[in-house]
Design a protein around this nucleic acid. Sequence first.
DNA 1: GCCGTTTTCGGCCCGACTGTTTTCAGTCG
Length: 588
Amino acid sequence: MKNREISLIFEHIAQCLEFRGESTFRQNAYRRAARALTDLAEDVEEVYARGDLENVAGIGAGMASKIAEYLETGKIQRYEEARKGIPDTLIELMKIPGLGPKTLRIIHDRLGIENIDQLEAAAREGRLDDLPRLGGKSIENILRGIQLVRAGSGRILLGNVLPVVESIISALREKTTLGDCLPAGSVRRMRESVGDIDILATAPDGRSVIEAFTSLPHVHSVLAKGDTKGSIITGEGLQVDLRVVAAESYGAALQYFTGSKDHNVHLREIARKHGLKINEYGVFRGDKRIAGATEEEVYATLDLPWIPPVLRENRGEIEAAARNRLPRLVRQQEIRGDLHVHSDWSDGHASMEEMIRAAKNMGYQYVAISDHSSAATIAKGLDVTRLHRQAAEIEKLRSRISGIEILHATEMDIRPDATCDFPDDIMAGLDLVIASVHSAMKQDEATMTRRVLAAMENPNVHVIGHPTGRLVGGRGALRLNMEAVIHKAAETGTALEINSQPARLDLDDVNARRALDLGAMLIIDTDSHHPNQLQNMRFGIAVAQRAWVGPENVLNTRDIRSFRQWLANKQKKAAPRKRRRKAAAASV
DNA sequence: GCCGTTTTCGGCCCGACTGTTTTCAGTCG
């Protein structure tokens, strides 16, 4: 799967063009193509083989021929030209906030600066002072930007951000008179990680709200404080901006600040064709405002229904809305059970009973206790003997806890040699088997793919847990042919997990969308190790929604009877020949 | 470099803020 590789090259070309000051439209074309490739769940090589590259929005003849060139030769001539004389370390400097391509180019051309250390030294030694348009404040800004870049990528897990945002909004509601108030930006779109946070509000008295905001206990430092906008850094190091807007502009502002940028650009192009102009204050025909108080009326001016924020990534949602074909998205209240829950029998931090009661409090009909198998030694994985003892313990809990069905499950290792960590008869005795890769994670693609496919072919394996093994902003995905995995999942009736842990979110939205397209079933669960973590379900739900997934594709929206039916069917579907042979043998 | 309700050429989203300037370039979201 070379989608990511080529996408990075296109992005790099765009950066080089930007540095050289070439046409912004051409830069944007490369960026759009880069984006199209990361959003393309299908393997670009297959699209190429079919001759369909130019049917992908954002990819025209030029991009298609460059992709073809890369797939055939491993190189792109245009890329080599674009980056000539521009070291990668120089491109890295474009990440410094406040330092754009124009200024960077002057700094590079006049002083020969090529990396962050040289830049910092030059700024401190006053060598930037004589350059045009660079005064004391600009240089101060650059130095601050350098610190920010050094401090890290700046994107934080949604799971860490959302609780802070919610706590800020509820504190504001307590202390001031607020009308509407919502987080905008990538928080509202529920992206897996977030840069900074925008909150929008209406209020009778903006100044007092900003005043209250900048004196919240969350505040570490105040960056700006005016009548309508305040900006703070929290103790967690998050930048939070609060804007108070007029009620008549609230919808337009919310739409505008929610983004995504690509979604908004597309929307404004359509507006222009309708003779309208959209900005953060409203929708205008000439000077006349025709909408703006609610998002619904903003979309309505373009003859579109309201589009859920989770879909606003310019991945076809605007076209779907225009045809009135927006998907019906799965909702958290439709989830009937959590199927991936650990207890202190392995590496969980609470007893089975605590976890089960917490699941019952979530309103679930069923819960699966799925502790690790013995190969996961660090996680105190269970061997067969302990598994049997656990089964007996669960039987007791079933009689003690009413109102929730308890499934005895396992999160079983798929061993490096592609065998399962439990024998077939042991798996067959469990209610549910989730098979996951936890070891030998650096295997090559062919080996790793064979390993996961083999697990799916086992009729006793129901689910593949955190299929790609990636960690958000951290460890990359396993080298795995996901296209083959998803096809096999559909073929064998094996479900793929959307793991709701904020650091995993695995499958991600792109893979989950592909699973939907290819007819593979999904399970959304939390992989909880503590009762509190059952609340993470909403992050998995968000991934599914971002992937356009509806309830019919999520197995744990089914009631327990229908879910058990699926469990039984999986065993028939996965290996019909083997089972027939077995049945024949038995009848002899 | 892409693309078509301005359709094979000529457009390409929009506005605010900052800091540097005397009317605006650069950067950001």
